[in-house]
Amino acid sequence: MDIEVRPATVFDDVKVLLGPKRPDASVCWCLSHRLPSKVNSALHGPERGAFVAEMCASDLPPGVVAYDDGEPVGWAGVAPRAHTQFARSTRIPHVEGPEPWSIWCLRVRPGHRGRGILPPLLDGAVAFAIERGAAAIEGYPVDNGDRKVDLTMAFVGFRSLFERAGFRKVADTDSVSGGIPRVLMRLEVAGSRSTAAEGGR
């Protein structure tokens, strides 16, 4: 299996991964953490998909899509932290260092899970951020150890996944997902990515 990760510029592919089965249904579309709460709450039904379509056509796509032989199979939400609700979070701390980008959602399409898609998907999200000038990248996964995580809450990712990608834990948080604590994982990329990666292994 050769997974290719590309910026989310094709709305129809994003729709396969994030869109509702019924066109008028209101689903997250990975906007809940991306937009100010008032803006997010004001978007209903097809408006949410239309908003994402505009983002896909913009200079800053809303994330990346993983493809297996041309088929969209995975999604990662990634953007500058300043552009997300994490900029105002009181549960996930801010740490010293360059202003980061955030990776807050990792999703593999049902029917394709358990095939090793998450690692290249996360790597692709990191590459997307670096190509756009990120000096640091953060994730906020659960620190679950051997505990199983409810699939509906697993979108935040796992500490072990981020560690394998070179991230290191820099702080605990006051946030939980599925009853499991989340940690702040960070990858410094400005001038010394290899050092940061070695510290996370």
Rank of each mutant, 00 (worst) to 15 (best):
Met1Gly: 10
Ile3Tyr: 10
Arg6His: 08
Ala8Tyr: 09
Thr9Ile: 11
Phe11Cys: 06
Asp12Glu: 07
Asp12Ala: 15
Val16Cys: 09
Val16Asp: 09
Arg22Val: 05
Arg22Pro: 01
Pro23His: 04
Val27Leu: 07
Leu31Arg: 01
Ser32Phe: 00
Arg34Ile: 00
Arg34Gly: 03
Pro36Thr: 07
Pro36Asn: 03
Lys38Trp: 14
Leu43Phe: 11
Gly45Ala: 03
Gly45Asp: 06
Glu47Gly: 00
Gly49Gln: 05
Gly49Tyr: 09
Phe51Thr: 01
Ala53Tyr: 13
Met55Tyr: 08
Met55Glu: 15
Ser58Cys: 07
Ser58Phe: 07
Pro62Tyr: 05
Tyr67Gln: 11
Asp68Glu: 12
Gly70Arg: 10
Glu71Asp: 12
Val73Asp: 04
Val73Phe: 02
Ala76Phe: 12
Val78Trp: 13
Pro80Lys: 09
Pro80Val: 00
Ala82Glu: 09
His83Gly: 07
His83Glu: 10
Gln85Val: 02
Ser89Pro: 06
Thr90Met: 01
Ile92Gln: 02
Glu96Pro: 06
Pro98Ile: 02
Trp101Leu: 07
Trp104Met: 00
Arg107Lys: 06
Val108Glu: 00
Val108Trp: 02
Arg109His: 05
Gly111Leu: 00
His112Glu: 05
Pro119Gln: 12
Pro120Gly: 00
Leu121His: 09
Asp123Gly: 04
Gly124Cys: 07
Ala129Lys: 08
Ile130His: 03
Glu131Phe: 05
Arg132Ala: 10
Arg132Asp: 13
Ala135Cys: 15
Ala135Ile: 14
Val142Ala: 13
Asn144Ser: 14
Arg147His: 15
Arg147Trp: 11
Lys148Leu: 14
Val149Cys: 13
Asp150Ser: 08
Leu151Ser: 14
Val156Phe: 01
Val156Ala: 07
Gly157Thr: 06
Phe162Tyr: 15
Ala165Met: 04
Arg168Asp: 14
Lys169Gly: 07
Val170Gln: 04
Asp174Met: 01
Val176Gly: 10
Ser177Ile: 13
Pro181Arg: 09
Arg182Asn: 14
Leu184Asn: 08
Met185Asn: 15
Arg186Lys: 10
Leu187Pro: 11
Ala190Phe: 15
Ala190Ser: 13
Arg193Gln: 14
Ala196Asp: 11
Ala197Gly: 05
Gly199Trp: 15
